[in-house]
Design a protein around this nucleic acid. Structure first.
Lengths: 192, 192
DNA sequence: TCTATTTCTTGTCCTATGATAAGAAATATT
DNA sequence: AATATTTCTTATCATAGGACAAGAAATAGA
């Protein structure tokens, strides 16, 4: 079953076969159509989503109504707003499907139960969270130390599918620039 | 004892009196002189530090030798490189004392022992980590959506002591601008 | 106390990116 | 297929902030 491979990936092979089979049953298959929301600002995340197929993005709306893409998520990744899920507080961002998606979802209650009873489950969960923290910090340093063009090139190298699937606008706000500006950058890159 | 208050703060009052007294004994008092390093890039963080008094900063050096301040830490906060501490991998940043500091430190082994045996300890730890993640995300969105001047004003509001204690240069790299530019921003603010 | 070093300010000039707008291309809707 | 909507490109003009440099002020070291 696909979920089994997916889960051993996500949990970094930290779970035993027995543990894996145990938690496997608690995941619920969910699909989302393009543009559908998995989580809306203001809602408390009741479940998280493990992505089997598809592309999603998270974004926040600032007081002036500007939409900032905070992340892209695809195959083998978790679509989750960590603060909302773990602290059970209203989310400050949205998660939306960019393409049709197949996901497996787990409820907070089940997560919590396993987190407190299975050592390897909580190690794996902690590793995931600290991994997200790490990526965010690297992105945040790159925002300061590298040019928009270099950030774009790096993003594409790490995530080539974005070119075809995500809109220029979404990629631009992820990079912290305007769509106009990203269009110029693309032109300049093509020139070479 | 000061440590007791400090700990109940840091652990968000999630620990019972008994648990608190239990872990209290495992903290070791450490002091750092101004400019001393608590952690250097490349080292694996063996301990984390709870700050009783003083100010610290973390910073990363990029390939061109530019120093970027990634955070300031003071009273009641944790001075920790989460990825290095939790994953026990070499740190990609440094933590250095800006003023003389009094800290209480806990080893990774002890942390790990309590994390796996005391439910409230691991909840509190998880909350701390997700709290750091949350702040980082907010900072990272602000880097995109607000001007350097506004980021500066916000930082000062949240952390007024920085003006007297941290250098212009360190504050500037934290805000993602040059010291020259921050100096101009200060001038403009004073004008009003 | 004197000197050296570091930190901060200010000036000039420059560049990456923003704001706005208009048209082209692509996609969605009927 | 025709039309409406969204996405992308391009142009013009404006500006925040960078690079560099020189001097002033503050701090640390001798």
């Amino acid at each position: 079953m696909a979920l089994e491979t997916l889960l051993s990936n996500v949990f970094n092979n930290k779970l035993s076969k027995k543990e894996l089979n145990h938690i496997l049953l608690e995941f619920k298959k969910v699909t989302f159509r393009k543009n559908e929301f998995l989580l809306k600002e203001g809602q408390t995340a009741k479940r998280y989503f493990l992505i089997e197929e598809g592309l999603l993005r998270s974004f926040a709306i600032d007081p002036n109504g500007n939409d900032t893409t905070t992340g892209f998520y695809s195959k083998n990744q978790l679509a989750i707003d960590w603060p909302s899920f773990l602290l059970q507080i209203p989310a400050q961002e949205n998660i939306q499907a960019i393409t049709d998606c197949d996901c497996w979802s787990l409820s907070f209650e089940t997560f919590q139960k396993h987190f407190h009873s299975i050592e390897s489950f909580r190690e794996a969960g902690r590793d995931r969270l600290v991994g997200s923290y790490f990526s965010l910090k690297k992105k945040s340093i790159a925002m300061i130390t590298t040019s928009a063009k270099d950030r774009y090139l790096l993003l594409l190298k790490e995530n080539p599918e974005l070119i075809q699937k995500a809109s220029l606008k979404h990629i631009a706000t992820y990079l912290g620039i305007t769509d106009t500006s990203l269009s110029r950058i693309r032109k300049e890159i093509d020139k070479v």
